[in-house]
């Protein structure tokens, strides 16, 4: 085994990282093509409120003191996701307003909970920026369960998600009931964001969802290829980021995100060099 993996906490982090490196870009592809890249940011901040709430409740209740804060984080995140979909209906002509509303509500709640819980501690710091030494065995199993649910959902709903992302009208004409699929999709996104937090941190989780996609859509031919390339870039960034962060003693979240930025620039320059060919006119 690699020396890097001789400690159990590193094994946990590595397994979680690999799962998250697959999950975040898979959902990210749909989010980016639906022009909702900022949703990941809004949901990550509402997740923080859930985690802060758990830290606060842990002061008073032994149940929350022992519970993994990721669960309450997930509950907040899924609630926020459903709320975003509702707000998008209220503000039909300003759909993007839902995002700053949820985001600021998330930060507001977090700040209140954190101050009531007597401020920052290392735990919270780890959630904000990600820390591979903080990944527990129970996190690995939680993320594994999310992995199974999300992959089954995307596999069986691929057609529907694809049509709804491309044009909703066509979807409705083919008899696809768009509402519950979109709500389920948002709930999955919320779960993946909560799951990715330990590795990349709340402030950087949206990068793991959107940067691999931003890179892949520069060079992909077709939607399936965009998904595969996004996953490849996500995994490369997570794995190399975790190695670098361990050996160079850097923050894991930041290292992973910088690896993504490097990949993104490589893809943009590749496209520049090969040039974008327009096919001849009719």
């Amino acid at each position: 085994m690699l020396p890097f993996l001789k400690y159990e906490f590193l094994q946990n982090a590595f397994l979680t990282g690999i799962m998250v490196g697959l999950l975040a870009p898979v959902l990210g592809v749909f989010i980016v093509v639906r022009r909702q890249a900022l949703i990941a940011d809004a949901l990550s901040h509402i997740t923080l409120a859930g985690i802060a709430a758990n830290l606060l409740l842990g002061k008073w209740s032994s149940f929350f003191a022992t519970a993994n804060p990721i669960y309450l984080g997930m509950a907040f995140s899924v609630g926020g996701a459903i709320f975003i979909e509702q707000l998008r209906k209220v503000y039909k002509h300003y759909e993007e307003l839902a995002i700053p509303i949820i985001m600021s509500a998330g930060i507001g709640l977090s700040v209140i909970f954190i101050s009531m819980a007597d401020g920052f501690n290392t735990d919270l710091f780890n959630y904000l920026f990600g820390s591979i030494i903080a990944v527990k065995q129970s996190d690995v199993w939680t993320v594994f369960a999310i992995l199974i649910v999300v992959l089954l959902f995307v596999f069986f709903m691929y057609k529907e998600l694809f049509v709804l992302s491309f044009d909703e009208e066509q979807g409705r004409l083919s008899g696809i009931r768009s509402n519950w699929i979109l709500v389920a999709f948002m709930a999955m996104t919320a779960l993946v964001i909560a799951a990715s937090m330990k590795i990349v941190g709340i402030l950087l989780v949206s990068a793991l969802m959107t940067l691999p996609v931003a890179a892949s859509i520069r060079i992909a031919k077709g939607f399936k290829q965009a998904i595969w390339l996004s996953v490849l870039f996500g995994e490369v960034a997570v794995i190399s980021g975790m190695f670098l962060s361990y050996y160079l003693d850097l923050a894991s979240g930041g290292t992973i995100v910088l690896c993504l930025v490097v990949i993104l620039f490589l893809c943009i320059s590749y496209k520049k060099f090969t040039g974008s060919r327009k096919v001849g006119h009719l």
């Binding site: 069986f156 529907e160 491309f166 083919s174 031919k221 077709g222």
Partner: peptide
């Protein structure tokens, strides 16, 4: 106003959407 021209889908993928209603769920 019906689609995003930067959408990464091939012509083949776009046409196959027309069959999704018939193919059905799952």
């Amino acid at each position: 106003n019906s689609f995003n021209t930067a959408f990464p889908a091939t012509a083949f993928e776009v046409v196959s959407m027309g069959l999704f209603g018939r193919v059905g769920l799952f």
